[in-house]
Design a protein around this nucleic acid. Structure first.
Lengths: 142, 142
DNA sequence: CGTAATCATAACTATAACAGTTACGTATCG
DNA sequence: CGATACGTAACTGTTATAGTTATGATTACG
């Protein structure tokens, strides 16, 4: 059980695109994802901060997309949901600066990891929420 | 403090390449990484299983590379160290199969994530332990 | 042989991120 | 007003990783 945020984020936005323009309450979304409404609200709050969704209180309220599904790329979601978490974390404790390797390794790793993350995001940017929804709607029942 | 395995793995193998052909005890490696010798041995045991290093007991023993640094790619290390861990995990609980989205999303995500991981590995495969060591040795002191 | 260096590994504790849950307050519709 | 829904704090549960301690097995070498 670790870090299914991207999975749940994609799931939720795909569901909202499917329901669009009807708003969905977090209870309904949680029913599809199979989790707790509070978890849904927490994650959607991050996606609202990133400008993908909005919410309304009261009867008939709930969550809806505020950007077109074709404009929401998977790389955007990754960035919005990972927040402060590093994809490839460095050392927990600063390595030994007196060691020829320990003293410089982090600088090298930062460059290496930057390139790797750019590669992921280039790939993820090729798919949008609209693409995911289309895949689902055209996919044969298994 | 989460999953610095790849960082530590790269650090250790670079150090072994630097010291090559002299074997280094886990105590020494731990001193450079700034962690505990047992942590070092645990990770190096994974890399031994993957065929990158070997170890010897007794005085003058320790760890050494058994493959040329030019032949050890960062993507190999990622694969050897992540083991069973998923880079992009799916849902914790199976999503609602009765929902049009919930019933098919995982199939779509598996494809999406496969492509993303391949993209990371393609990028990481461009760098070897030898490259990292060269970067360190030629890098100006900060 | 004995001793010191070194690995192998089990067992335990500690930490942090994430997930799940409960609870209560606020907003809004009708 | 009452029902529906969000907002969020606070707490608990779970897991992966990291760190630590301890014990046993190897091995080099005098």
């Amino acid at each position: 059980m670790v870090n299914s945020k991207l999975t749940v984020g994609i799931h939720m936005l795909t569901l909202l695109a499917f329901a669009d323009p009807m708003p969905l309450p977090s209870e309904t979304i949680a029913g599809s994802v199979n989790t707790n409404p509070v978890v849904v609200r927490r994650l959607l709050a991050l996606l609202r901060k990133a400008g993908f969704v909005d919410s309304n209180s009261g009867p008939g309220g709930g969550w809806r997309l505020v950007r077109r599904p074709e404009e929401i790329r998977m790389s955007d979601l990754r960035a919005a949901l990972e927040e402060n978490r590093e994809v490839f974390p460095l050392h927990n404790a600063k390595p030994n600066a007196a060691c020829p390797v320990g003293g410089k390794i982090q600088g090298v790793l930062v460059d290496l990891y930057d390139d790797a993350i750019r590669a992921v995001d280039r790939q993820l940017a090729k798919t949008t929420v609209a693409d995911v929804l289309t895949s689902i709607l055209t996919r044969p029942v298994p």
